[in-house]
């Protein structure tokens, strides 16, 4: 899901400032997950992962749930890439 899809998922909020703030807030956890699970994402890939996962991340009620969201999102992206 790219920027357009995110805009549909979070109407009236997915402006640049909103997105920038979202990335800023979720980056420490996403970076930690990237290192912990050895996903090998570069910086911009992590930002993209956050953007794709954002609608679900915003509903997470614990850091474990947020990690699970990132995990599933990573797997989905990975299998979509492998299927091409």
């Amino acid at each position: 899901m790219g920027h357009d899809a995110l805009a549909r998922a979070t109407p009236a909020r997915a402006d640049d400032a909103w997105l920038h703030r979202s990335i800023e807030l979720w980056l420490p956890l996403a970076t930690d997950a990237n290192e912990r699970y050895d996903w090998g994402y570069g910086g911009h890939d992590i930002e993209r992962l956050i953007i794709v996962a954002l609608p679900d991340l915003e509903r997470a009620d614990s850091s474990d749930a947020a990690r699970a969201v990132l995990w599933f999102c990573h797997r989905r992206q990975h299998s979509a890439g492998a299927g091409r």
């Binding site: 703030r21 807030l25 979720w26 956890l29 991340l57 915003e58 009620d61 614990s62 850091s63 947020a66």
Partner: peptide, 14 residues
């Protein structure tokens, strides 16, 4: 505006 979680497990209200 939103709830988020840090890498050390703390939850925050933005």
């Amino acid at each position: 505006y939103r709830i988020f979680f840090s890498d050390v497990g703390h939850g925050y209200l933005d």
